[in-house]
């Protein structure tokens, strides 16, 4: 897989039915492959981190972010989309 095309999507909020379905359908429509999903409950909040491969994406990252934010509003969740390099630079030398 092409380096530098991996995105990290984080989802924060109250747990409810349909979070993963709602988000993964947007990703599937955009032809973005989910590489890894990790979820946990932090201080009572639902926290999910997804690593995705956007190298074959039909959407540019701005549009993807917009659609996920919209979905986040609908489900009452905070969703962020960030390039993997940020985490590489901050947490790995």
């Amino acid at each position: 897989m092409e380096e530098g095309k991996r995105l990290i999507i984080t989802v924060l909020g109250h747990d409810r039915v349909g979070i993963i379905a709602g988000i993964s359908s947007i990703l599937a429509e955009a032809n973005i492959n989910i590489l890894d999903i990790n979820q946990t409950i932090l201080q009572g909040f639902f926290a999910m981190v997804m690593v995705v491969d956007s190298s074959q994406s039909r959407l540019d990252i701005g549009e993807l972010r917009r659609r996920l934010h919209e979905k986040g509003r609908e489900l009452g969740l905070e969703i962020t989309v960030q390039h993997e390099d940020i985490f590489k630079f901050m947490h790995r030398i």
Binding site: I8, T10, L12, D36, N38, T40, L42, A47, V49, V51, E78, T80, Q82, I86, F87, M90, H91, R92
Partner: peptide
């Protein structure tokens, strides 16, 4: 994932 959830959430919280 090559990063722990804590690391990722720390960065996201810094930015947001």
């Amino acid at each position: 994932t090559r990063f722990s959830i804590e690391e990722i959430l720390e960065t996201v919280s810094m930015l947001n």
